[in-house]
Amino acid sequence: MQFANQTGGNDFTLQGLLNSADTSVPLFFAFLCIFLVTISGNVIILTVVTMDRSLQTPMYFFLSNLSFLEIWYTMTIVPKLLANLIIKSNNISFSGCMAQLFFFVTFGATECYLLLVMAYDRYLAICKPLYYSSLMDTSTCLQLVAGSWVTGVLTGLIPVLFISHLNFCASRHVNHFYCDIPPLLELSCSNIYLTEISIFILSLVVLFSCLLLTLVSYVFIVNSILQIKSNSSRNRTFSTCGAHLTVVLIYYGTMIFMYVRPHSSYSSDLKKFISVFYTVVTPGLNPIIYSLRNKEVKMSVKKIAHRVLPSGFKKTQKNVKSIF
C-alpha cells in the first residue's frame, strides 16, 4: 500500500456535489443566488445594527455577531463549491484542505454556541423581564460572545490536529464538495479508530449539549408566551420564536445526522445532499428569519437609506419594500 506524504505538496481532489455535467450550470446559479442573498442579507444586518443606535441592544449585538460569522462560514465553503461547478477547479492543497476544515468546524461550532446564547438572551427577556437589563449588561454580552468564539476555535482545532497527523493513501480523491471529516477519514491508511471515536464524542458533546440547552430555553419561553393575554402579542411572539426554532432544528438535525455516528451506511450522495442544508441553505435563512422579518430592522433600513440617499429615498424605499 502506497502512502502519500501530507507535507509533500500533493493536492487533494474534491469530487464535487454531483457527477452529472447536466446539472452543474443550474446548481451553480441556484447556489450563487443563495450565496448573494446570504452575504448581502448579513451585510445589511451588520450595517444597520452598527449605524442605528436604537438597535444597539444585547439581542442585536448577538445577531450582528451571528451575521459576521455567517459571512465567513459561507465564504469557507460556497466559493470553492461554485468554482467546482462552473470551471471544474477541483484541486486543493493539503494545507488548504486542513485550513478549510478548521474554519468550517470553528464557525460551525461557534454558531452552535451563539444560537445557545441567543436563546438564553430571549429566555431572560421574555421570562425574566424585570432582571433582564441587570443580568444582560454590556460586560456579560461581551463575555458570552468572546466565550463562544474562543470555544469555537478550540473545538475547530481538535479534529484538525487528529486528521493532519494521519497518513493518506495514494488515492486522494475526496468524495465531497469540501474537506469534511468523514470523507477524509475514508481516505486514510492509518488506524482511525481513536480519531473517529474522539471526533464522535466531541460532536456528541457540542451538538447535543447546545441543542438540549437551547430547547430548554425555548420550553420556558413558550410557557411564558402562553400566559400572554393579548392574542395579537402572543401570536406575533409565537411566529418569531417558531421561525427561530425551525432554523435551529434544521441546523442541528442535519449536523447530528452527519457527525454523531461513528459509522454510517448512508450513501455518499445522501451525505452531500444533507451537507448542503447546513453549509448553503441555513446560512441563507438566518438573516431572513432572525432579522429581516423584524419590523425594527426594516424601519432602521428605511431611516438609514433616507439619511444616506435623501434625494433618491422614494426609489430606495420602494426597492426595500420589494426585498422584504
Results as ranks from 00 to 15, higher is better:
residue 10 N to G: 09
residue 15 Q to C: 09
residue 15 Q to L: 15
residue 17 L to P: 01
residue 17 L to D: 00
residue 25 V to I: 15
residue 27 L to F: 11
residue 29 F to K: 11
residue 34 I to D: 13
residue 43 V to F: 09
residue 44 I to C: 06
residue 47 T to K: 07
residue 47 T to D: 10
residue 49 V to F: 04
residue 59 M to F: 15
residue 62 F to H: 09
residue 70 E to V: 00
residue 73 Y to W: 11
residue 73 Y to K: 09
residue 79 P to K: 12
residue 94 F to K: 03
residue 99 A to P: 00
residue 104 F to H: 14
residue 107 F to L: 10
residue 111 E to Y: 08
residue 123 Y to N: 05
residue 125 A to T: 08
residue 125 A to P: 02
residue 128 K to T: 08
residue 155 T to C: 15
residue 156 G to S: 12
residue 156 G to D: 14
residue 158 I to M: 07
residue 161 L to I: 11
residue 162 F to H: 10
residue 164 S to K: 09
residue 168 F to C: 12
residue 171 S to V: 08
residue 174 V to A: 08
residue 175 N to M: 12
residue 175 N to H: 11
residue 176 H to L: 02
residue 181 I to S: 04
residue 184 L to I: 07
residue 185 L to V: 05
residue 187 L to Y: 08
residue 191 N to C: 13
residue 191 N to D: 14
residue 192 I to C: 03
residue 197 I to H: 15
residue 206 V to L: 15
residue 208 F to E: 08
residue 208 F to C: 14
residue 210 C to N: 08
residue 212 L to P: 03
residue 215 L to R: 07
residue 216 V to Q: 06
residue 216 V to H: 07
residue 219 V to D: 05
residue 225 I to T: 07
residue 228 I to K: 13
residue 236 R to L: 11
residue 241 C to W: 02
residue 244 H to Q: 08
residue 250 I to Y: 10
residue 251 Y to N: 04
residue 251 Y to G: 04
residue 255 M to E: 05
residue 256 I to S: 13
residue 258 M to W: 00
residue 259 Y to T: 01
residue 260 V to W: 02
residue 260 V to S: 08
residue 261 R to D: 12
residue 263 H to T: 12
residue 272 K to Y: 01
residue 272 K to T: 00
residue 276 V to Q: 01
residue 279 T to K: 09
residue 281 V to R: 05
residue 285 L to S: 03
residue 287 P to V: 07
residue 288 I to E: 13
residue 289 I to L: 07
residue 295 K to R: 05
residue 300 S to P: 03
residue 306 H to T: 02
residue 310 P to W: 11
residue 313 F to V: 12
residue 319 N to D: 07
residue 322 S to D: 01
residue 324 F to K: 02
